[in-house]
């Protein structure tokens, strides 16, 4: 008897299209919700997702506030780099300090691990939040010392602010 009852209930349900209507209600609910507001979509070129101060993007070389470059050519970054992306050559200057004459990073090799920044004793090589960049031609993947310093100059304010923010955790 119970079985027959259940059978009847099943047929009634399927002929009244109850489950289909339940599905339509669910999608209809979302339609009405998104008619009024849409908090999920980020309209990319105008809006961007928030970036952490620890974001590891393009690399840069920083300078001291007096304009002197920080890098002392200790080559710790070159040694620690797991992808062997960094090439450094150095020579002493007239005043006896040791500075780099060549500081190349191959962006094809770089894996943005940030180990170079961790190893740097003078906070010279740093990762920046820049991640929308592209390489158009062969050879542009080599970031020379001039380019890295230029990025550092451009981003100095933000780099300094990020380093300050993360000071306690480094």
């Amino acid at each position: 008897m119970k079985k027959i009852y259940q059978r009847c209930l099943y047929y009634l349900k399927s002929f009244l299209l109850l489950e289909l209507l339940a599905g339509l209600m669910l999608t209809g609910k979302y339609f009405i919700i998104s008619c009024f507001r849409n908090r999920l979509t980020i309209q990319f070129p105008e809006e961007q997702t928030p970036i952490s101060p620890r974001f590891r993007g393009l690399l840069a070389l920083r300078r001291y506030p007096n304009g002197e470059e920080r890098c002392i050519a200790c080559k710790l970054c070159e040694a620690v780099c797991p992808a062997l992306a960094i090439t450094i050559e150095s020579a002493p200057r007239e005043n006896g300090t040791r500075r780099t004459t060549r500081y190349d990073i191959d962006m094809f090799k770089c894996i943005n691990c940030g180990l170079c920044e961790e190893s740097c004793p003078v906070d010279s090589i740093v990762v920046t939040p820049i991640h929308h960049y592209h390489i158009l031609e062969r050879g542009q993947n080599i970031m020379s010392k001039e380019k890295l310093l230029a990025i550092g100059d451009l981003m100095e304010d933000q780099l300094a602010a990020d380093r300050l923010h993360e000071r306690d955790f480094r």
Binding site: T27, G28, Y30, F31, I33, S34, C35, N38, L40, T41, Q43
Partner: peptide, 13 residues
């Protein structure tokens, strides 16, 4: 547009 809204997207805009 409708399918976009139902899937909580924006559709062409």
């Amino acid at each position: 547009k409708v399918i976009g809204y139902i899937q909580v997207r924006l559709g062409p805009n």
